[in-house]
Simulated assay, not measured.
Amino acid sequence: MNDTTSLRYNDEPVLLAFAFRPFFLLTALYAASLVAAWFAFLFGGLPLPLGVNPIQWHAHELLFGMVPAAIAGFLLTAMCNWTGAPPLKGSGLLALVLLWAAGRAAMWLSGWLPLWLVATIDLAFLPAMAAYVARVLLRHGNYRNLVLVALLVLLAGADLSMHLGFSGFWPPGGRLGEILALDLIAAIMVVVGGRITPAFTANWLGMQGQDPALVRRSEVLDRAAFWSTVAMVPVDLAMSFPVPASLIALIAALVNGWRLLAWRGWKASAEPLIWILHVALGWIVVALLLKAMTPWLALSPSVWMHAMGAGAAGTLILGVMTRVAMGHTGRPMRLPRMAIWIYVAIITAGLVRVIAAFVPQLAYPGLSVSTVAWVVAFLLFVLIYWPILSRPRADGRPG
């Protein structure tokens, strides 16, 4: 096989051999370009053809542009392991990628296109992915993971809410959709993190000659962590009960924190590919605590929202992508040279962004540092992982 010409495997481009390949690269490229353009728009006067509220456009593209691409890369890959089903590849995968890209183009050109058309194009991706995932899971009797399909459908509903706000048909929908999206993304991270983090930690401890049983897993605690997080959705949907919302966020923080401590992440502090997952899930706990404190300390909602978005989602996305890209391309399960700076940069971006939300006087310098760190993190992923994701597997297997 000649990987110096068109990089094909079985007559298909390598980039279309498995969903994680194109979607991980697109996630990183879009994350970097979106935040850089947003900063240039805010402070450099970069003209953007936006027909919607700029702040909510920024939130929308992170929550419904970047994050769903990362979810697609992970979920469409992981479910092959869960079910034994063949991967979505070739023209089918290309169609899904183009559907995602069409939504991004429509949102960037929302000032030139009718808003109903923008909404129609953008809203197509999540239902299409959910329908495909549901069909595969049902065909193989994998009912346990249908909860992720339900969360994707609800996430599409949050996207619809934002578009109703953009159009003026339902003005509160913009803000509500943003909050519900963060709630649902938190729930997805709780599910995904609960599946992979303790398993990877226990396996690593076993390979180091330590007792894997140090990682204490509990189905009861897993269910409590999930349902306490999901319970924020109906309360936030009401939009007028800050005290119950605060209490539920506090319960979710305590349960998720208890579960995370039971996994003994510090025992794997020598392995970056594992401790970064624990850090990401720790961000969820911090974000939930900040959400619980918001009405009592009169905090700006921006604080907990950026802790959940820039902190938890940004860190977990890079943590998962850096690991999956190695394991699913037949390479040794270790962080490539210089890739540790991806983690340093994304942790810096999250911390500084939350501090800037806490202290309005630090808004400009904080946004500047956070933007640079965020862009560096995702561009480093592209630079380091492009050769890995665009070339055939190192072990010669398909995929």
Rank of each mutant, 00 (worst) to 15 (best):
L34K: 12
L75A: 15
G194C: 02
V149R: 05
M308Y: 10
A313K: 02
I340G: 12
T371Y: 07
P234G: 04
R104T: 09
L76W: 10
P49M: 02
A85E: 08
P272Q: 07
P332Q: 07
L99V: 06
W57G: 04
R139E: 13
E219T: 14
V52Y: 09
M107I: 06
G103V: 04
G257W: 00
L380R: 01
L109V: 04
V344I: 11
L148N: 14
S91M: 12
W57M: 02
V255N: 01
Y9Q: 12
A325P: 11
S33Y: 01
L164C: 05
A186I: 13
L94D: 01
G396I: 05
A28K: 00
A70P: 07
Y343P: 03
V14I: 14
L160V: 14
W170K: 05
F378R: 03
G319Q: 07
P234C: 09
T371P: 09
H328Q: 11
T315Y: 04
A134K: 10
M232F: 05
W82D: 09
I251V: 15
G174W: 00
W258D: 06
L250R: 05
I340Y: 14
E271G: 06
P398A: 12
A292K: 03
L380V: 09
W386E: 01
E271Y: 13
M239K: 08
E219K: 11
P234L: 06
L117W: 11
S246H: 07
M326T: 03
M207D: 08
L137G: 04
V190D: 03
A224F: 01
P22Q: 11
A130H: 02
V303Y: 11
L154Q: 09
L25Q: 01
G209E: 10
L154Y: 04
F64K: 02
P172S: 12
L15C: 07
Y385W: 11
A213Q: 15
A150P: 02
P172K: 14
T371W: 05
T229K: 00
L113Y: 08
A225I: 03
P49A: 15
A339H: 04
L277W: 10
G206D: 04
S302K: 14
A134H: 12
S110P: 07
A37L: 13
L123W: 10
A181F: 02
W100P: 01
T27K: 09
M129K: 09
C80H: 06
P87R: 15
V35M: 13
L88K: 06
R393D: 08
A245H: 10
A225Y: 00
P336G: 04
F23A: 11
